[in-house]
Structure formats: C-alpha cells, structure tokens
Amino acid sequence: MKIFIQYMVSLRCKLLVKSELEKLKIKYKSVELGEVLLYKNITVAKREKLKKELHKSGLELMDDKKAMLIEKITNVIVEMVHYSDELPKVNFSVFLSEKLGIEYHKLAETFSKTKGITIEHFIIIHKVERIKELIIYDELNLTEISYLMHYNSISHLSKQFKQVTGLTPTFFKSLTKRQRFNLEDL
C-alpha cells in the first residue's frame, strides 16, 4: 500500500516520517520524498494517528488524487534539482512525463491550475535556489555552475537569477548576508 505525504521535500522530512512510522509500529518498505510504500494496509485508527503526528511537524497525509499528483510533480522537481548529482540531459517535460508515466500536457495543466504557477517557472525558482546554494559554498565559479545547471551560457543563468531574485549572481556573491529559502517554502 502507498501513502502520500504533502510538504515532504527534504531528507530531514524523510527521517521524521521514518521515525513516526517506527513509533507507531507501521512496517514500511521504502520512504521517498512524498511517498511511503507500506508492506500492508493500516487500520483507520493508525492512519489517523499517523496523520495527527505528521501534522504536528507540518506534514500532511493526502487523500485527494489531484493533490497527490501535484506532490509527485513537486517531489520529482525537488529531487532532480537539489539532490541529483546531475540534471537530466533530456528536456524537463520529457523527464517528468517519463518519470510519472503521465502525458506532460496533463501534468502542466493540473499543476498550473492548482499551484497558480507553471511547472517551468517552478523549476526555475528551484534552480535559482540551487544556484544560490552553490554560490554560497564557493567551490565552483559561475561558468562551472552554469554548466552543472544546464544553462547555455552564464548570461542566461544571470538573466534568470536576476528575474527571480532581483540581483545578479555576482552581486549576490558579494553580499555578507545572503538569503536562501527553505525548500518547503518555495
């Protein structure tokens, strides 16, 4: 049985969910971002208890199919941008469609209607957050970051960065207090 959990976008969230499952003695096969595969169905009482405990930490069990699809899209994007060593070589629309087994047009329409933002813009926002992280770590120069994040040029990266943040990457790097957002808040 699969259960879906909203707002589960980090490794910390995965650890929290595993902990709650273990406290409730719910056996699970795997815990991924937004999704838990259980060995067997759980009782309504255990489901409610899990729901209550997760809610205390800002996570929500989902029942609505549309909400579950949005959460799957979100988790694929977060995992792809923030936790993969390398972005996919194929177009993001192809990647999402193949990963979720659903036609991209349907994914994009559902996402936009529900979130009020396009998938493309959502990906750009996350890429910019990842770029901020890479700038702060100061291990790569802008050319290397541009290559890693699959931009055609530094100017393309800079243009998108400035559209989202209002700052150039170089100016952001020079700031002493650099603002980043929690993935859960994007």
Rank of each mutant, 00 (worst) to 15 (best):
K52D: 10
R47Q: 14
S30M: 11
L50G: 04
K51Y: 03
Y39C: 12
S19L: 08
L33C: 03
L50F: 02
L61H: 06
L33S: 01
L24M: 06
K23A: 09
A45M: 10
K14C: 13
S10V: 05
C13V: 07
L59E: 02
L61M: 09
G58H: 12
K23C: 05
Y7E: 15
L37R: 11
L61G: 05
K29L: 12
E60H: 09
T43C: 09
L24W: 14
T43Y: 03
K18T: 03
K23P: 00
Y28M: 03
L33I: 08
L15A: 14
N41D: 15
K25Q: 14
K46Y: 08
Q6R: 13
G58P: 05
K14P: 04
G58Q: 02
L50R: 00
R47Y: 10
L15Q: 11
I26G: 03
G58K: 04
I5E: 00
L61R: 08
L16C: 15
M68P: 02
L50Q: 01
E48N: 12
L11C: 14
L37I: 08
R12H: 14
Y28G: 02
H55K: 12
E35N: 08
K29E: 14
L37A: 11
L33G: 01
Q6P: 10
S57A: 15
R12D: 09
K56V: 13
L50A: 06
K52I: 04
C13A: 13
R47A: 07
L24P: 07
S19C: 09
Y7W: 13
L16S: 11
S57N: 11
K14I: 14
E60Y: 04
L21H: 03
R47W: 04
K18D: 02
A67T: 07
K52M: 12
I5L: 07
K56Y: 05
E60W: 06
K46S: 10
V9L: 13
V9P: 02
K52L: 09
E60D: 13
L21Y: 01
Y28A: 06
V36D: 00
V9G: 12
L37G: 08
Y28E: 08
L54K: 00
L24D: 05
S10H: 04
A67R: 14
Q6W: 05
S19N: 15
K65T: 13
A67E: 15
S57G: 12
R47V: 02
V17L: 06
K25W: 05
E48R: 13
Y28L: 04
K52Q: 11
L50I: 15
V44S: 05
E35T: 07
M68E: 07
R47I: 00
V31Q: 00
K65N: 12
L37N: 10
K66T: 15
D63K: 10
M62H: 02
M68G: 05
I42S: 07
L61I: 11
L37K: 15
L38R: 03
S19F: 08
V36H: 00
E53V: 04
R47S: 07
Y28R: 08
S10R: 05
M62F: 01
Q6H: 13
K25E: 11
K23R: 14
V9M: 13
I5M: 08
